[in-house]
């Protein structure tokens, strides 16, 4: 590899453009890990959004349902209904939701917990 022989093609302005665009790329790097559209858990009561929880940090949220208080637990990348006063506990037993568009419905409480993902509409796309 004659790396040095390629250096002679680099004019001063080329270095400037390269460094500028490298800085732009470096500035964009955090987007890959934090920014953009965060995946989130959406809690609805009677179809009305009562809480939107980003799936980036662990937390527990209490939500008032028709029967009483339900507990939504969020961990990085997943969410679940941790507790619900409903009689059959279907939404609690559904466990952790990880996939976009997954949903746990606590019908007696009139609550639903759904995951909103970054991939909407298309399953895949060939370039």
């Amino acid at each position: 590899m004659r790396v040095k022989s390629f250096l002679r093609f680099m004019k001063p302005g080329d270095w400037a453009v390269l460094l500028l665009l490298a800085a732009v790329t470096a500035a964009l790097a955090p987007v890959a890990f934090t920014g953009g559209a965060a995946e989130k858990a959406v809690v609805r009561r009677d179809g009305v959004v009562v809480a939107e929880l980003p799936l980036t940090q662990a937390r527990r949220v209490e939500v008032q349902g028709a029967l009483g208080t339900s507990v939504i637990e969020v961990q990085p990348g997943r969410a679940r209904v941790a507790a619900d006063p409903g009689p059959r506990q279907y939404c609690v037993r559904q466990g952790w939701l990880t996939q976009p568009n997954a949903i746990a419905i606590c019908a007696p409480s009139h609550l639903s917990l759904s995951i909103v993902g970054r991939s909407a509409g298309h399953d895949s796309l060939a370039y």
């Binding site: 732009v24 790329t25 987007v31 890959a32 920014g35 953009g36 559209a37 970054r118 991939s119 509409g121």
Partner: peptide, 14 residues
Amino acid sequence: VPHDGLLYLVPFFA
């Protein structure tokens, strides 16, 4: 892909 999730890919494209 009318969704902001696409922006996740921007750093890699850059």
